[in-house]
Each structure stands twice: as C-alpha cells, then as structure tokens.
C-alpha cells in the first residue's frame, strides 16, 4: 500500500508559503491591485474559501488567535469547517470574540466591532475583478486597470440610476483604494464598505480559483464609487436587533412561521452575544434560563 505523506504546519509547504508571502507584500505595496499568484489545489472546494485559507495559512503562526466567520456568524457550517481545519493543521488557538482575534477570516461580512491595530482581516473572495461582470475578459480588464480607465463602471452605476432611480448594487459594491485602483470588496453588503476606510487593521483578500491576492493597508482611503447628485448610502434597518436591541448594525431576517411572521437579528453573532452578556435585550430575547437549554 502506498504511504501517504504527512502535512506541514498550516498545510502548505514552505515554498508555497514563500510564494504567497511575496505576493502579499507586493499587494500591500500596491493597495487595491490584484497580484496574480500560483494558487494551489486545496483540500476544500474552490469557491469555499480556498483563497482566504491560503492567505491565512501563509501568515498564521503559533502565537495567533484565529476567528472565522461566514455571514457574520462563527457557527455557520463553512466557518466551523475552516476553523476546524486550522485547529487540525496548525494547532492554533481559536476564538469567537472579535477583540481577542489576531487573524479574522471572513466571508461576506466585516465585524461590527471596530478592528484594531495589529489585527488582520482575511477576506474570502469569489470574483476579485470588479469589472468582470461588465467585461468578462481578463486581458481587457487588466488593460483598464493599467490605464486607470474606469468609465465602464461609472456608466453601469449611472444606468442603474436611470433605470431604477438609484444605484441598485447592494453588495460587492466597488470602491476606489488610495485614489488609484477600483477594487471589489468581496460580496460584503455595502453596509460594510465604510468600515474599510481608514481601518486600523490590515485587510487581505484571497481569491483561490481566480488566483489573485490583494490588500488594503491600515489607514488607507477606501471610497465607495458614487455621483455628486447620487451619493453613496448604506442600508438602514427600521428596527433594532430582536435579541440584543442593537441599532445601526446589519441584520438577518429570520422567518418565524408560515403566516408572514419574521424578525430581524444581528448577523454578527459575536457582537450580539457580547451585547446580551452586557445586559442588552431585544424584544424577542428568551429569558436567560430558557436560552441556556
């Protein structure tokens, strides 16, 4: 029987880590520019976070504390699976508390709690090219970035306004980074875009299938594209979180019954739990004893 090889710390071999690390350093030096890298085949499917996993695997060390979220939650199955992967291959400490994490890998959300200096936010990215749905060819979009030719994107947004009276992009809303590159923030709701601007944390983006890494250094301008007469605006929810009463946070809609009953709760589960632990309560919060069961 063939003998199976054993895996290196954090799964990737050292040569691969060096290649990804070099790409990360160049990505930081050219904010918002997509650095091509020789993405590896990972033991999880493309589209499920292979880019983010490769970035995390290349930066993580024994001293790190890792948090993994999907849709803002630590307990969604893909987040659970990726967290378990790193516990297995890197024996790393994990947490659900945003403030305790040194590395946060995320899909589709930025935590509500403001990130701090020294923290790294790693985004899983499906399609890194903000112009891809306007121009499917890489050879063309690369030229547009080279020439800083972003007219197509403005035309698209303007057509939205003409047709719908407003910009109808609600997530993966394009941003301009450090005044030069137009960048896809990954499919986070545009609600989260302002958190990217002048963040104290380093933001790294990994797209495994598309083989691109990009970055936003701390304290960097990240401006959502808009028009003078149609300024960028984020989603607003009419009610607070039904569990913790938080306002000004992103909410998930939970369907309660088949009669149209629904409630809205925090998408960031850690933020919600932390508030409840500090005595905040929404109108649907079960009494403490019941909730523990």
């Amino acid at each position: 029987m063939t003998e199976l090889a054993t895996y290196n710390f954090a799964y990737l071999d050292e040569q691969t880590k060096r290649m990804i690390r070099r790409a990360i350093l160049k990505a930081i030096a050219i904010p918002g520019y997509q650095v091509p890298f020789a993405s590896r085949e990972m033991p999880m499917p493309y589209g499920w976070g292979t880019g983010g996993v490769q970035v995390t695997a290349s930066i993580i060390g024994p001293e790190d504390v890792l948090k993994v979220i999907d849709q803002g939650a630590d307990d969604t199955t893909n987040a659970v699976s990726i967290r378990a992967f790193f516990q297995k291959v890197a024996n790393v400490a994990v947490t659900t508390h945003t403030k305790d994490a040194t590395i946060i890998q995320t899909r589709h959300r930025i935590p509500e709690q403001q990130l701090e200096k020294g923290q790294v936010l790693v985004y899983q990215v499906p399609i890194p090219e903000p112009l891809r749905f306007l121009e499917p060819r890489e050879t063309e979009t690369r030229k547009m970035h080279a020439l800083e030719e972003y007219g197509l994107m403005h035309v698209k947004l303007y057509e939205d306004i003409a047709r719908h009276g407003r910009i109808s992009t609600t997530y993966a809303y394009p941003v301009k980074v450090a005044g030069r590159y137009v960048m896809d923030p990954s499919p986070t709701p545009k609600f989260d875009n302002p958190k990217m601007h002048m963040s104290e944390a380093l933001q790294l983006f990994g797209a495994g299938r598309e083989k691109r890494i990009y970055a936003v250094p701390p304290y960097t301008d990240v401006v959502s594209l808009d028009f003078e007469d149609y300024p960028f605006e984020i989603q607003k929810f009419e009610q607070p979180c039904a569990l913790c009463g938080a306002q000004g946070v992103y909410l998930d809609e939970v369907v309660l019954d088949d009669k149209g009953g629904r409630m809205f709760v925090c998408s960031d589960t850690d933020h919600c739990e932390d508030r409840r632990e500090h005595g905040h309560a929404g109108e649907m919060l079960a009494p403490a004893k019941e909730a523990a069961e």
Partner: peptide, 18 residues
C-alpha cells in the same frame, strides 16, 4: 464544480440586501 456548488453556501447577508 467548486464554484457552481458554492452557491449552496449561505448567502443570506447578500440576499437580505437584495
């Protein structure tokens, strides 16, 4: 297959926005 099948992962944050 990875990218097609990833559509079954939760997308409810984006769907909420839509």
């Amino acid at each position: 297959t990875g990218f097609v099948e990833h559509l079954k992962l939760p997308h409810y944050v984006d769907f909420q926005a839509e």
